[in-house]
Nucleic acid binder design. Structure first.
Lengths: 206, 206
DNA sequence: GTCTATAGCGGGATAGAC
DNA sequence: GTCTATCCCGCTATAGAC
């Protein structure tokens, strides 16, 4: 049980500061002194509330990860037909990403550098593979009905995620290449919803 | 001039080892001892060849970055019409990614954590914004001819990159969610070429 | 060129006063 | 609860022998 039910005001302040610093510098790059400074306290106080840097990180990581998928999970597991799921999925992802544009690169990097922790996470959660099977079924239903072309569910999921998430991962690179300001770029991204749904639906046509 | 013209056998061995370790653990997470061990030498020898960890990193980062775009840059800057550029771009990207699937997450993470270094890099290189303008022109040419729908060049570039690169960035996550083995997943990715080109071209239709 | 030994510093964690 | 002072480990880099 890495998370806590009741967090004091001070604990929340520290966790917010920790997320800011961890996202900016990564686990190894962030120091407990950085986090303390960001939270406006001294570093021994960190150890008073959370016993170690590792422990703070686990909580921040867990929360960021859950938030990223909390909008998406209910959609995937739901009983709606595929053509309702797609826009809802895009909406859920984009909403979270626009609010926390720098979180995904942090998550993906940490997952890549220690994938074992991810596996533990999934093992302990409500079965995510069950969700994937449900999504697969809603795809196969449409294929059988002849309303979409034959497509692997995993391919469809990859394409949707790609179009939603990648632009946030590559933000600094794309802004530099195309000489677009941060603000302008975020505006482009916030208008991508119909674009993405359109691309996916055109692709699924027979 | 961060790179070198002539590298000895030993230097190349160290640089390969350094890339392996930096990609796996990031700049802060990698230690000079790790790199030395991976190269089969002792750490003072690293400092004999390259003066510092920072210096080794610059060379590795520079090379990885250049390689990722060396296949793509000539395509973007070329004079072919858009419909030839798109498949060539996808081919170039996928070829590099299949050979070095773990490099992009490393690059993107380092860019995000210190975007200033990226800017320096671009300032010193042959004008990449010139390339972007050329690509834009090949898009606008088709729009004017009425062969494709009206689309912002930056949007098109984002979509192509998303569909090519994201699946590599998210590899551990997607494999875990869908219970697909590494080998099987890479096989799926190596067959994405026509899929991606198809999606982009369908989207550009009037 | 390559090694062993070590200097020197930065960061996580704790002791103990208040 | 919150602080100052400090311990101690691990890491980069260097000194110096071979």
């Amino acid at each position: 049980m890495v998370n806590k039910q009741l967090s004091s005001e001070a604990e929340e302040k520290i966790l917010r500061a920790a997320q800011t610093v961890f996202v900016k510098k990564g686990y190894k790059g962030a120091t407990t002194r950085d986090i303390a400074a960001e939270a406006g306290i001294t570093s021994p106080l960190l150890n008073y509330y959370f016993r170690s840097k590792e422990n703070i990180f686990q909580i921040v990581y867990e929360r960021a990860f859950s938030r990223l998928y909390s909008n998406v999970y209910p959609v995937i597991i739901g009983d709606e037909p595929l053509f309702d799921k797609i826009p809802a999925l895009v909406d859920g992802l984009l909403a979270e990403l626009l609010e926390n544009p720098d979180v995904p690169i942090f998550i993906f990097n940490e997952i890549t550098q220690s994938p074992d922790k991810l596996i533990e996470k999934f093992r302990s959660k409500i079965n995510i593979m069950e969700a994937y099977k449900k999504f697969s079924k809603s795809v196969y239903d449409e294929v059988e009905k002849g309303t979409i072309r034959s497509v692997r569910p995993i391919t469809l999921l990859i394409n949707i995620q790609s179009l939603c998430i990648y632009p946030f991962l590559a933000r600094p690179l794309i802004c530099e290449i195309s000489a677009i300001s941060y603000r302008e770029y975020m505006k482009i991204l916030s208008n991508r919803r119909d674009e993405i749904v359109g691309i996916i639906e055109k692709d699924l046509k027979l």
